[in-house]
């Protein structure tokens, strides 16, 4: 078709329609597969989203759907209450510091463990190690916290017993702000490192075995194989996990902290999640906790977007 003269309007609508039709037809299988799934997101995720307005209202927690719609607008009142708390900066600081520590220590741990397991000899040995390493993941934090408290108690706990043997005074570790974050990080690693290896091992399993064989034939040593094949092979998954981890940066690890902390360590341990929990104990401050949740989500999303851009620039596929 000649494009010297601009096509007439009538013809371009027809073209557009035909283009749309071909486009729908071309990808018809993908559309069909995607449709029920996106329907799920529409119904169960997007329909209830009107609830976000609760954060901006004086919602009392009564009256069903009408109750939400007809509550008075409170503007930023709930957010202001939140930002003006004398503890706001402390809560923010504690949340970020814990996340930072976890990022530095707890994020690489499963990767390292996965590499070690991958390099280990003996099929049966590997299976057993894997199975055992998952076990702490299945214990709830209520149990784990209980175990930790028993281990560290100055009243007859083994750690303190050891210290006494060495001539030192017993220390109440879990009530001591100097040790508390360390305890949080170490217990987190212990509980989740095994489970975290699953996804990295799966990624390692997807690496083409021929790459290893070819490298072996070229004379590559164990180290070289690990650095030049295995690590790059899981690069994408590490990137994704890191990006998603960015979104968790304001996550307060409620179950863990709540079961281990006490007012003695509020200064280093109290974060948004535990604070809001104490606030809303029986009186269901829906609006207030909704506002805090919204704030956290907004910041988390912003961080994920940044992380995604950075990852893409470094060559990854990113999240989107």
């Amino acid at each position: 078709m000649n494009t010297i003269a601009a096509p007439s309007r009538k013809r371009s609508i027809g073209t557009a329609r035909r283009k749309a039709a071909t486009w729908i037809w071309k990808y018809r299988y993908l559309h069909a597969l995607a449709l029920p799934c996106m329907l799920y997101f529409l119904i169960f995720k997007y329909l209830p989203m009107y609830g976000i307005v609760i954060a901006f209202k004086d919602y009392k927690g009564m009256g069903g759907f009408e109750g939400i719609v007809h509550s008075d607008w409170a503007g930023m009142k709930n957010f202001n209450l939140f930002f003006h708390s004398i503890y706001f900066w402390r809560l923010l600081r504690n949340t970020l510091v814990l996340s930072l520590y976890l990022l530095i220590f707890a994020f690489p741990a499963p990767i390292i463990l996965a590499l070690l397991i991958n390099e280990a000899r003996g099929r049966w040995f590997k299976k057993v190690v894997q199975s055992i390493s998952y076990m702490p993941h299945f214990l709830s934090w209520v149990v784990c916290a209980g175990l930790v408290l028993q281990l560290l108690t100055p009243t007859g706990g083994p750690v303190n017993a050891l210290m006494e043997l060495m001539g030192k005074e017993p220390v109440a570790f879990t009530s001591d702000p100097a040790y508390f974050r360390l305890i949080l990080v170490v217990t987190n690693i212990w509980k989740e490192v095994g489970w975290g290896t699953i996804i990295y091992l799966a990624a390692m399993a997807s690496i083409d075995p021929e790459l290893y064989e070819a490298a072996a034939m070229d004379g590559a040593r164990k180290w070289q194989k690990m650095f030049y094949i295995t690590l790059p092979g899981i690069k994408e998954i590490v990137a994704i996990m890191l990006i998603l981890g960015m979104g968790d940066i304001l996550d307060g690890h409620f179950e863990q902290v709540f079961n281990l902390y006490s007012p003695a360590v509020y200064d280093v341990a109290d974060n948004f999640d535990t604070y809001v929990y104490r606030q809303g104990l029986v009186e269901a401050k829906f609006a207030y906790s909704s506002a805090v949740g919204l704030f956290k989500s907004a910041v988390a999303l912003a961080l994920v977007v940044l992380a995604n851009r950075a990852a893409k620039r470094l060559g990854s596929d990113g999240l989107w």
Partner: peptide, 10 residues
Amino acid sequence: KDFATINTNQ
């Protein structure tokens, strides 16, 4: 010394 964190079971 750890009166602040002890729980019922302990």
